[in-house]
Design a binder for these strands. Sequence first.
DNA 1: AGTCTGTTCTGCATTACATCA
DNA 2: TATGATGTAATGCAGAACAGA
Length: 303
Amino acid sequence: MMAQKQDLGLSLSLNFPATAETNPSSIQLNLMPAMVSSSSPPFNLLHRTPIWPDSCPSSSDRNHNADAFRVETRSFLKGIDVNRIPATAAEAEEEAGVSSPNSTVSSISGKRSERDLPANENDGGERSSSRGISDDEDGDNSRKKLRLSKDQSAVLEESFKEHNTLNPKQKVALAKKLGLRPRQVEVWFQNRRARTKLKQTEVDCEFLKRCCENLTEENRRLQKELQELRALKLSPQFYMQMAPPTTLTMCPSCERVAVPSPEKAMDRPRVNQNHHRALPFHPWSTPANQVVQRQMSALHPRS
DNA sequence: AGTCTGTTCTGCATTACATCA
DNA sequence: TATGATGTAATGCAGAACAGA
């Protein structure tokens, strides 16, 4: 089953690019193309916008995309386990009920009530013929599941990688190529989007869990440090060696916390003169966090 | 211009079936 | 062979978007 998931392109990885080590706010989930849009931000849980090359093309523009895809996938389709190929494109469109206001296809036949009818009611028993079910079985309303063939799934996956939604013409074309009903293609894409989202949620959940662990560890460390400082404060020697109250600063080059110079103990902490401007110390960039981030990178190596 | 109605599409939750250990 | 777990195709519903009256 794991191999099957990989085939579906669902493998995910959590990566922490070099920049993320010094700027945790830039941490991104490095996902496969099918999972997210090209500009996917972190925690892109709701990826509801159809990913077309342009922002909102007309259906005719989209159809160019479909044509390009047709050429790409043509070679896949030899020897596919065909359940049933609609006799004509018009028939396929009828089955799809394609009459979107955005579509260039006729809207005469596209009533939802028809579209949602069970296959054996609106397609003349197509499903039964596709699965070799007898006429008797076709008569009842029992729901039979079609298992898509490996090739069919592969083609659908390829298509999904191109774009995770289909316009009506693409849907019909794909269905025709695969020998499926357009509704089946539509359903497959719906379920595929759902799986993608679920996987994304799992990744995000894991990420947040790690963040929580990091913060807990950091909190523990700071509490310990605070205790030590309080203990030190109570000792008589403390006042002899006391450094001035200070804000921790970090050198952006070597990522070390600046140490106040002894001769200027009452002055602000000093960073090595060779280094650049000191930056405020950020808890995300602590070595402890970097260790955890490296661990996560090891867990989810970049492909 | 604003409103209503009808249609389609999509996301989501859920169900039902197929497969496997 | 029976059974529970798992994966996934299919269903139903709600809401958004849009066109036309």
